[in-house]
Design a binder for these strands. Structure first.
Lengths: 346, 346
DNA sequence: CTGAAAGCGCTAACAA
DNA sequence: TTGTTAGCGCTTTCAG
């Protein structure tokens, strides 16, 4: 009755009072510690449920020196890449009963600093820094704290930080080889902006894969320097076909570029996949599944990347500095076959 | 020196020791409270910076009865709609120095229950429930707690809950009127799945807008029942044009449907926007900006919706139950003009 | 102007 | 088997 007056959460003292035991006894009963008479335990438990009692995690954290809380620093929260990454991280941490503080930094250094400071003050057990491209970045400054930090998609080049990356070379190789497997001979590449490490890696791997399999790269068969969008893909495909009407396969550096390329090819009277096979990169549902035909593309396994990053952080949290850091680990990609390449030749 | 041995965060006691004052004095100095000799204050401050001291928020929260923390319950975190919504919420709360716990529930009731329980135990100041469609939903169960809760995109139909919704009717009206403004006479509608309230509202508003302006709806000029994807848009446009080769404007219930419709029209030899004008709905960048031509579409102002939801929650947190609840508020949409409709007729 | 001490809600050690 | 108490790190009275 008395409780219904106040609107603050019931405390263990309330439970103890209702059950007619001491506060220490109530604690033991609720945590299953020590030796208690079964009836007492029951009495306490029913008092607790009756009151809807949940121990205040703030206090428990204070006592345990752990908050079961981590911070997620995302530089580009609304970006398409972050989403499965965040989902993977959240899945893994939720399994470990850990809650995630979401902090979006929009590549604003000052904002990042504030968020970090706030996270540290809130005593998070660890921090995950999430990027949206594979270029190197400075490590975050956590002062003299020993809070574990891992990086996901975006890495710190100091040789002593755990970073989880996409293996762009692996993906590009799989894309290129798939074009070979469906019987394409004159294979071209439409690249992204060369300032991005991701674009560079995909290009390099395209070249080495072609060489490894003794395929000749068509002259001017590599075009790049545009943006990651359909407009560039459209323009690039036109440029490409103007030089080489015999191109029969194109590895595009991303799905939106592939979308634009398909559009251009249709204008030129080439059908995909009958005349030309197209492979994208990203497996971005929004594009790959709404393209016509649906895109064969490379999945970067971001969900798994998030899972790995989450697991690594958990290890560091639970085993402290005894855990050897992972260094930069690159996760392989997966080829997702849909309709833009046609069937493999036997 | 002593401090460099331990790796836990410096406490106010450490600061007080270093400054040679009592712990109470240190607190006053750091919080600018009470009367202190300037030199003492300075001594404490420099000790604090030297140690990199940040007060433990856990403890402060315990003392203040507020954690400066809210929970974000998202049923569909990876959905395209949640993103700007979350960004708006986070922006608003970050301004108020509030951190956000991200909880994705994947429409899993058990998971939702666990998350809520955990949030409550962590003493969050409030909870925002984020949906991805405007259909009604049950309210979350927070027991006898008085924690403020608001709903964003998805609402509770009990007349006493603050819910923030998209005004689908407003958006559909603007879309339809724009088609009229560019001079279209034979206007059709491709709807989404009728089981979605969003699809129903858009349809209804299309009809009333047409009637209000004394436009005749072409017979069989409304097709619906497919999914929210390009495949359906493609199919529906074919169906539509088979009956009515004179259709010159189509209001599509979403951007992906519009993408598919454009594709179909091109196959039929109709160019967009010269022969037929197309308006989408969502202003989903991924689609609208990568479509060819770029889509004229309706923006649901999700960012603003998130901002409003965040602000409402803040009010409730700061003014308790004295704040009148907002009820269900619907925010207007915005027409975004790009290239799929052509220029307005004067 | 500064120090001492109580107490937030809970756990864990120690008494009884 | 149960009760008592110290203390986590900080703020806030109340003495000095």
């Amino acid at each position: 009755m008395a409780r219904s007056i106040t609107n603050s959460a019931p405390t263990i003292r309330d439970v103890a009072n209702l059950a007619g035991v001491s506060i220490g006894t109530a604690s033991k009963a609720l945590n299953g510690k020590g030796q208690l008479k079964a009836t007492t335990r029951l009495r306490v438990e029913s008092a607790a449920t009756q009151l809807g009692f949940r121990p205040n995690e703030l206090v428990r954290s204070l006592l345990r020196g752990r908050t079961y809380t981590v911070g997620l620093l995302a530089d580009d929260f609304v970006g398409r890449f972050s989403m499965p990454l965040l989902a993977g991280i959240e899945d893994t941490l939720a399994d470990a009963e850990i809650s995630v503080f979401l902090c979006t930094t929009r590549e604003n250094v000052e904002l990042e600093r504030k968020h970090i400071s706030s996270l540290l003050a809130k005593q998070v057990d660890g921090i995950i820094v999430c990027g949206h491209r594979s270029d190197p970045r400075p490590s975050i400054d956590i002062g003299n704290r020993k809070t574990p930090v891992v990086y996901a998609y975006g890495y710190v080049d100091d040789g002593k930080t755990s970073c989880f990356q996409v293996d762009n070379a692996d993906g590009a190789r799989k894309a290129t080889e798939h074009l070979m497997n469906v019987g394409r001979k004159r294979i071209a590449h439409i690249g992204g902006p060369w300032s991005w490490r991701d674009a560079q890696k995909r290009l390099q791997a395209f070249i080495t894969t072609m060489q490894d399999h003794h395929y000749e790269i068509p002259e001017n068969g590599i075009v790049g320097g545009g943006n990651w969008d359909a407009r560039w893909g459209y323009q690039a495909a036109h440029q490409l076909m103007a030089n080489h009407s015999d191109i029969d396969g194109i590895f595009c550096a991303c799905d939106t570029i592939a979308l634009g390329a398909i559009d251009a090819l249709r204008e030129l009277g080439r059908t995909v996949p009958d005349d030309v096979s197209i492979v994208g990169f990203d497996n971005w549902d929004a594009i790959a599944l709404n393209s016509h035909p649906n895109l064969t593309t490379i999945d970067m396994n971001f969900h798994q990347l998030g899972v790995n990053a989450g697991r690594a952080l958990l290890e560091m949290i639970e085993h402290g500095e005894n855990v050897p850091h992972h260094g930069v680990v690159s996760l392989p990609c997966t080829l997702v076959i849909r309709d833009s390449c046609g069937a493999p030749t036997p």
